[in-house]
């Protein structure tokens, strides 16, 4: 169970005027400015749920996670996670949580992962038999049995992430915080990690809070989504409600045999061209999909086309340009 009310965090940053004169000036006198990373924030997550925290870079997702894990002390507000206040950094609390960060590693770079695991075994006081069993289970689930004795620096990014995840789960945490667990991975590795998280959650019924800026992560894992923009919660609810925000539009990509001029047929569907005009991306309402596609296939030299849901980048861009969409969606929810 995770609850927080009016949680916020301000950071101080220092400003420098450009150029040598500015540097010289700031050598003697520095001006500081307060920047709010997270504005008063409320959330309630029941036990056993997976919730996705979505938002562009710098929206405050990571800061929020860091306040939940007790790494960063909040500037104000209250947090209660499984009966603890994270900022107090109670040892019993730290034994029950886990943190995975896609961009950082807790493994010792120049050692095989197994050595790092043994260190973690001591940290979390895991009995030898439980430890062996746990390592065996997780290694099988992640298919990394052969990687545990290889130096971490020699692993690929995808392999490293698997081992990283494993290291965080050895102590059977009740609450797991995953900060961008699939960042930088190729599509197959991303899918493997997602699959693992889903299976793991299914077996262990732990609470998981996941941040990402890949929609696919959230879609695959979470039933509930929280969208943050500039440190504020802008949407909290069902994932289908969020993806329907832009109406029932499909994203269709057409590849052409050769360079194509702007065509009146395409204009109503918000065309995005590539540089040499051989590929265009369109947003077509669901109910007109068939009709429009057929017309385009007839009029233009199409070699290939495919449809997909709107990528998160475009949903977010649209949402950010038109925040009113979020409010109406929130009301419906």
């Amino acid at each position: 169970m995770i609850t927080c009310q009016g949680l916020y965090k301000n950071f101080k940053t220092y400003q420098k005027e450009p150029g040598f004169a500015g540097t010289l000036k700031s050598f003697f006198k520095r001006e500081y400015e307060t920047k709010s990373a997270v504005k008063p924030f409320d959330i309630e997550i029941p036990e056993g749920e997976i919730v996705g925290l979505l938002g562009p870079n710098g929206a405050g997702k990571t800061t929020l996670i860091k306040m939940f894990t007790g790494i960063v002390v909040p500037s104000g507000g209250t947090v209660n996670i499984i009966g603890f206040n994270p900022a107090k950094r109670d040892r019993r609390y730290r034994k029950k949580i886990a943190l995975v960060m896609g961009q950082k590693s807790q493994l010792w770079w120049d050692l095989p992962a197994m050595d790092s695991f043994q260190l973690l075994q001591r940290y979390y006081e895991i009995a030898e038999r439980d430890f062996k069993k746990r390592v065996g289970e997780l290694a099988e689930l992640l298919d990394v049995q052969k990687l545990l004795n290889v130096h971490v620096r020699k692993l690929s990014l995808g392999e490293r992430m698997k081992v990283e995840l494993m290291s965080c789960l050895l102590h059977k945490p009740e609450v797991i915080f995953l900060d961008e667990p699939t960042i930088g991975l190729d599509l197959i590795a991303q899918r493997n990690i997602r699959q693992f998280i889903r299976d793991y959650h299914h077996r262990n019924h732990c609470t998981i809070l996941l941040t990402s800026h890949y929609m696919a992560d959230v879609e695959a894992l979470c039933s509930r989504l929280v969208f943050i923009l500039e440190g504020e919660k802008r949407f909290d609810g069902d994932i289908t409600t969020f993806s329907n925000l832009l109406g029932s539009e499909k994203n269709v990509v057409f590849d052409f045999e050769n360079s194509v001029e702007e065509h009146p047929l395409l204009i109503p569907f918000d065309p995005h061209w590539n540089d040499d005009h051989t590929r265009v991306e369109l947003r077509i309402p669901h109910n007109r999909l068939k009709e429009v596609t057929v017309q385009i296939l007839e009029c233009l030299p199409v070699v290939e086309f495919n449809t997909e849901k709107l990528p998160i980048e475009r949903v977010m861009k649209t949402v950010m340009e038109n925040p009113a969409l979020l409010e109406s969606a929130q009301r419906e929810n």
Binding site: F20, S26, F27
Partner: peptide, 12 residues
């Protein structure tokens, strides 16, 4: 040279 001075002074 100017950039270097600038850098030096930032980490005063």
């Amino acid at each position: 040279i100017k950039v270097h001075w600038s850098n030096t002074l930032v980490y005063r």
